[in-house]
Design a protein around this nucleic acid. Structure first.
Lengths: 355, 355
DNA sequence: GCACGTTTGGCAACCGATTGACAGATGGAT
DNA sequence: ATCCATCTGTCAATCGGTTGCCAAACGTGC
């Protein structure tokens, strides 16, 4: 009756990941199989050249035999690199998000990074909390349709390298498309169709992007001698577009540019239900060219934003920064205009004024 | 001139996460501030009750002061729990995926889990590689539109708890909607409209779901005394739907049920371009009710699949299994019919036969 | 054959948590 | 006042890698 026998239990604190399954092989297993030291295995696997070709091959073979995969968690601990990027999105319901994800996921994967998706919905408080929760497990964060205040965003930027999409903030890296070309084309297009007076369906009241679009539209319409009015703000959904119908009708404009495609489509349908012909009685231009915007009848004319490209560029910028081990925004990029261009896609929802 | 002074460098191997930023606080920092042992901090933070209320408060306060966040990587190492779930998707371009993500992300977040998104596109080989790459960093994986062979899937299930969506495989947990109600309603609806002969636009040739839908349609149409033909297989995209137009016309059917909404919409547009009236000359029913399927003109009648719910349930099932520390599929669930029902959404693309 | 520079591989500390075992403190009963 | 059961906090090992430092092995030129 020995009272002390616990000493032989060498793996007492083992994870016991899941019953009935062998634990994943480690570099120690490889080391044993290959007859070398674990540190040699580590080097052979992650620092090609540091080890003699002979031993390296030996280790590679052993690794293959055991079907070894490096444990990213274990690696992240000493290196501080998680090889993971976080995509924080306020509202996952917004379809523009999906195109961004497409671009971002691919760019990340090509560089060996993994993408974490987190939705924060609701208020800014919640979004900040989400970002802080995600921060420790990622090397950088990309904010997609953020509702945070500038200052909160700056705070987050202290925590981890940060890139913001569709919003410009002092001292924070941003990926923002160049609105000019698309808006120039859209207003010129409308002018050529004889529209003299147009409306802008404003998005959410605090939205940086909505006012950026408004500013650009305003400048251009002045230049073209057109009159333009703000209608809104409104929520950036089908419902929001619908809800603006009364005000649009009351405004007497012959054409409307909406903050985004969702609002444009909502308006389109509400107009049609009211008996208005589109584009006969009202021309409508959307923004973004989201999936499905060409499903409508008439198909929606819209100012395309290269969302997938934006996602890709956001990841690239992030990775550049990480590679440079830099917490500050890219070089002198703050003033540099992005080469991400918008363009008008003419479909069926725009036509001659008063036709 | 001392030759030995390296001993004073206690943090030689420190991560050096990023210049110019204080490293994240650790439980050691808290322990120092609160004047207790790190292990006490660990317990205070993760095992409420194990520590006296007084010390616990002391530690909580210190943690708050330092704005401490537990490092998920460091925690994952000893526990073997990453608190992360992987969503592996073959083709991120497929919009049905969006709704699944919505449901899954929320369910995961509610339980404190984080979601990793990985796309594998291309072949099955690539998909298996993707899954193996992701496996070590997650507690479980959900396969969304997998192109893997049954056997490969079973292999992955050995690696990590696995849940498959929209496909049934022996010995693997699956979340599959009940096709019967929706298909019953759709065929009854078509029968009532006078359609006697319908076509099924088949999806990708290897697709489990496409043949499941076919089987159910076949059984029901026999029951209703309707004739039904397969048209396809085809790629499950707008283009695939378009491409089937010739065969649909040649088949002489008065109504078509498509494998998914994308194909249905493609067909709808091709038909309209050919001068056919929908639903006058051809009735079309889609499948899934994806975002945008009601944008078309006429809006698409479709058999709705509760995709967000499916995402949610997949995560729940996964978490149940993880909670039970179980690698095998849920209890006797294999035979148990899921309570996820489909239903027909009648919109404008279906109408009286030969009208 | 020898001295010397370069590879190559091993040792051990470390990343930030978790946890079994244990000792000291506390409090109640006798 | 003494003893014992319970509660509380500490010690130290551990998860699976990475890496600075060092010594042994190696090859080379003279």
């Amino acid at each position: 009756m020995t009272e002390i026998d616990s000493s032989q239990d060498t793996r007492s604190g083992a994870p016991a990941r899941s019953r009935s399954s062998k634990p994943a092989p480690t570099i120690y297993d490889i080391a044993e199989l290959a007859g070398v030291n674990p540190s040699t295995v580590s080097r052979a696997l992650s620092k090609p050249g540091r080890i003699s070709a002979k031993t390296e091959k030996l280790i590679q073979d052993a690794a293959k035999t055991l079907n070894y995969r490096v444990n990213p968690m274990a690696r992240a601990l000493p290196t501080g690199r998680t090889m993971t990027l976080g995509l924080i999105i306020a509202d996952i319901t917004n379809p523009m998000f999906f195109d961004v994800v497409r671009g971002a996921e691919r760019a990340a994967r090509e560089s060996g990074y993994t993408l974490i998706i987190a939705e924060s919905q609701e208020s800014g408080e919640r979004e900040a909390a989400t970002a802080e929760r995600v921060a420790p497990s990622v090397d950088g964060m990309i904010l997609v349709t953020t509702r945070l205040a500038d200052e909160q965003i700056a705070d987050l930027a202290e925590l981890r390298p940060l890139v913001v999409i569709n919003r410009r903030i002092d001292g924070v890296d941003a990926i923002v498309p160049d609105l000019e070309p698309g808006i120039d084309q859209a207003l010129t297009h409308l002018a050529e169709l004889g529209h003299r007076s147009i409306g802008y369906l404003y998005g959410p009241s605090g939205s940086w992007m909505s006012s950026a679009r408004w500013e650009a539209l305003l400048a251009k319409s002045v230049e073209l001698g057109m009159s333009i009015v703000e209608i809104g703000p409104g929520i950036p959904t089908l419902e929001g577009g619908r809800a603006s119908m009364t005000r649009v009708a009351a405004s007497g404009v012959s054409a409307v540019v909406a903050y985004n495609d969702l609002m444009a489509i909502g308006l389109l349908r509400a107009a049609q239900e009211k008996g208005l012909r589109v584009p006969g009685d009202l021309s409508i231009v959307g923004f973004d060219d989201i999936f499905g915007s060409d499903f409508t009848s008439p198909p929606l004319s819209t100012i395309r934003t290269p969302l997938a490209l934006i996602g890709t560029l956001a990841v690239r910028r992030m990775l550049e920064r990480i590679a440079a081990d830099d917490r500050r925004p890219a070089h002198g990029s703050r003033g540099k205009a992005p080469a991400i261009s918008t363009e008008l896609v003419v479909r069926g929802s725009t036509g001659p004024a008063g036709a």
